[in-house]
Design a protein around this nucleic acid. Sequence first.
DNA 1: GTTACTAGGTTAAAAAAGCAACTCGGTAAC
DNA 2: GTTACCGAGTTGCTTTTTTAACCTAGTAAC
Lengths: 198, 198
Amino acid sequence: MNKPTGLRALKKERTRDAIGDAAVSLFLEHGFDHVSVNDVAAAAEISKPTLFRYFHTKEDLVLHRFADHQGEAARVVRDCGSGIKPVTALHRHFRAGLDRHDPVTGLNDHPEVMAFHRLVFTTPSLAGRLTQYQLKDEEALADAFGEGIRARLRAAQVLAVQRVLARTNWQRIADGRTAHDVHPEAVADADQAFGQLR
Amino acid sequence: MNKPTGLRALKKERTRDAIGDAAVSLFLEHGFDHVSVNDVAAAAEISKPTLFRYFHTKEDLVLHRFADHQGEAARVVRDCGSGIKPVTALHRHFRAGLDRHDPVTGLNDHPEVMAFHRLVFTTPSLAGRLTQYQLKDEEALADAFGEGIRARLRAAQVLAVQRVLARTNWQRIADGRTAHDVHPEAVADADQAFGQLR
DNA sequence: GTTACTAGGTTAAAAAAGCAACTCGGTAAC
DNA sequence: GTTACCGAGTTGCTTTTTTAACCTAGTAAC
């Protein structure tokens, strides 16, 4: 279950990181639409076909950081065993994210992270593609819940809650407050929201 | 006549440098015989076959710095035109090497260069392989001089002179003197040695 | 005196990267 | 309105690298 070691895997990972870092760095500096994939490839010192072997679309150059969390909710539900309710497991998982100021919870005030979020939400093509990722996430979570319309509805509600919570936190941070300052409210909001899910 | 640009050439050059630097660094630290080619490959983060595609033998990992000067003497003779005597051109070329403290003249007191020379001359297999390089150099120079036994003799004498001069300079530096201090004597020795060649 | 290990060096197949040329949609020039 | 250009993404071919397996010579164990 561990990722394969060796030179091949090592260099692939490095190349992927180099491309992603170069892309985000350029996009933050000049804006998503003012940087071509050729520019990114040149900055990462790889060829254009190689770039598209690592990232299927230009948007993925930015969104792979979300894609890394793909299916996380579904995994939490599958791994929680039978002794504990799925929603409780998801609640605890989100709470843990808040505590470590995970960027996906919106509760992170690092300038780089904030700039990154602004980039995603103010660039239409990026925001659009992000919702596609969220849809896949929702399907996976629904499958983890079971089958039928009820599983789908619950999955949709859980992810809607998480989106709203993250967005709210992000807004507070954007208003100039620190993550540390916002943390208690974020936890209270999460408690209330997940409580209402039951 | 310029080397081709592009990602391929760029990365080849970097890989070659990485291997060479890793090798010399390890050899200087632990000794040539106490470092395996596997160690070098691991340090340079490349596989063993790749290492041998860049350097034919373990010795070449060290001696490529001399190999870069391969055929230099022959080139000087070929390029000197008919208006100037070959020996004079070689003399001037060696003199220029002294002036810029080229390591091949022995007149260089950088600690790294000195350690490198000591490594080569105190490791039998390296010293042996170095003479093979010098033999090829001698053949090339002989061809540049012309044909027959006279050309070969002249080539052998010229290179013998250069070897003795370099070795003498190196010995003076090894005795603790600076390259700057030794320079006048080195020039005088060269003048005398090349003068006698005519 | 076999056995086994190490180190230098090679081989063959498969993965990955580079390169150039291409498609396709948009858009600016004239 | 065609011509030309630019940017996203693709395709086919070549070069480079990894991988694992092998060869050979030396050498230490027992």
